[in-house]
Design a protein around this nucleic acid. Structure first.
Ligand code: FES
Ligand code: FES
Lengths: 145, 145
DNA sequence: CAAATACCGGACAAAAATGTCCGGTAATAA
DNA sequence: TTATTACCGGACATTTTTGTCCGGTATTTG
């Protein structure tokens, strides 16, 4: 479904968001990698990209780390993260790999697949990091194991 | 979503099925690759695997090629093909890559993601190759362009 | 039987994804 | 100011996926 990079990116964002929302605390790479069970250096690469796209904020030096501003917590969606890392293909590409997904020249799965893909779009579009971080805070969801 | 191998595999199977159902005609690799716009040698590899799993039948020598028996047309589903090529992960794996998808230890997307994944399961489980080949026959669906 | 055909199987090659390392830079704190 | 901290950026390494090649084998036709 998603690439490893994307999985790590989402999990990292939710963890950063949870720490920012609950404690106003910045988190370092080592901390993140440990809490979401991901390779540290690779996760760094993924987060660097998200910082460039301003989906997350980073601060260098002692007491530095990653954080999500209240605005980012409220506005950054799963869709933005997925598109930033994996590109828009999963949101609009053909299930069977045809170069164009269209109702004019549909693949045999098109009309059955479309509603499913649309629901995925809706899921990604309507869920913010702040919302998902809340579940982790409440002990209703987990980021590893 | 699916790997390239899986996309080629499904498209090839539908084309083979359409030719078997409509004309009782075996099709060769060159023909298949041209009709579904896929790399010939790579498609061969994918089909070899499906032959081993008896999802499609192959015959060597002149007049040989690939075909689907009436039974295969009726019973082989998208799910069987996807699992044979990509494995069961897309049908049961966690959206965020947790080693186990479970409601006991759910990731933050679990309860929203589950119904979508279930619908995909249902789509793959309930559609046979014969059924999809029929759409191509009727000009309602296409395997390239 | 002999020749031609077409899938089979394994080795090989290229590209992409995943993962690591290390020096550079900016920020903090003593 | 100086030392320390922690992200940044690029190069490098490994693994997986994608794709190619070629001789072998089975089958058909003459
Ligand atoms: S054309 Fe294949 S999903 Fe739309
Ligand atoms: S635990 Fe992640 S989808 Fe079920």
């Amino acid at each position: 479904m998603f690439s490893k990079a994307c999985e790590y990116g989402i999990r990292a964002m939710i963890y950063i968001g949870q720490q920012s929302a609950d404690f106003g605390r910045r988190v370092g790479l080592k901390d993140i990698a440990a809490e979401i069970d991901s390779p540290e250096a690779f996760t760094a690469k993924v987060l660097q990209g998200l910082v460039r796209q301003q989906l997350v904020t980073s601060v260098k030096g002692p007491t530095g780390g990653f954080e999500l501003t209240p605005e980012q917590l409220r506005t950054v969606t799963l869709k933005q993260i997925v598109v930033a890392i994996d590109g828009p293909d999963i949101l609009q590409g053909c299930a069977l790999g045809l170069p164009q997904c269209s109702a004019k020249q549909p693949c045999p799965m098109h009309f059955q697949f479309l509603p499913i893909r649309d629901q995925l779009n809706e899921l990604l579009r309507t869920h913010t990091i702040g919302e998902l971080a809340g579940k982790v805070h409440d002990g209703l969801a987990f980021l590893k194991r």
